[in-house]
Computed example of a mutant assay.
Amino acid sequence: MARITRALNDTGIPCPAAADRARNPHRDGRRWEVLNTVRAVLTNPRCTGRQVWNRQRADHALVDPANTTLGHRDVVRWNSPNDWVPSCERQQEWPPRPSRAARGMNHVMPPW
């Protein structure tokens, strides 16, 4: 992973945080990071062509257990990885993306 990170940084390919600074103000956005960004991309099932279902569930929790009249709210929680359901086969390839110019985007985007 360190070699991949070095190659991405040396060739000047912008990291995902650099592409959308408004959504990533807490990130540096200047360089790819080995422990975070590169690992996340390489282990993301969507990036490998697979789909995973049942990662999260929505539970209904009381807003205030001492005052049940306040009602419930939805709380998203992670399921155990043992309960995840991965696809057995790779999903159909994504269609090619139109160029940035065709999408009317002039800012820098990641190459994927």
Rank of each mutant, 00 (worst) to 15 (best):
R6M: 10
A22K: 15
R90V: 04
R21D: 06
P111E: 05
V63T: 15
L42S: 01
N24H: 14
R103Y: 01
T69L: 11
N54G: 02
G49P: 07
R73D: 02
A7R: 12
T11Y: 07
I4F: 04
W94T: 08
H72Y: 12
I13R: 04
N67G: 04
R103P: 01
A19G: 14
P110F: 03
V34H: 00
C15K: 01
P111H: 07
D10W: 01
G49T: 13
P110C: 05
T5G: 02
P96V: 12
Q91P: 03
A61R: 14
R55I: 15
P98S: 11
C88T: 11
M105Y: 01
R6Y: 11
P45N: 05
A2N: 09
W112C: 05
C15R: 00
N44G: 05
N24Y: 09
R73S: 08
Q56K: 15
G12W: 01
Q56G: 07
T48Q: 15
R46K: 15
D20Q: 05
Q91G: 13
R23T: 14
R57F: 04
R30L: 12
W84K: 08
R57N: 13
N36A: 10
L35K: 10
D28W: 03
G49Y: 07
E93H: 06
P96D: 08
R27D: 09
R50T: 10
T68C: 13
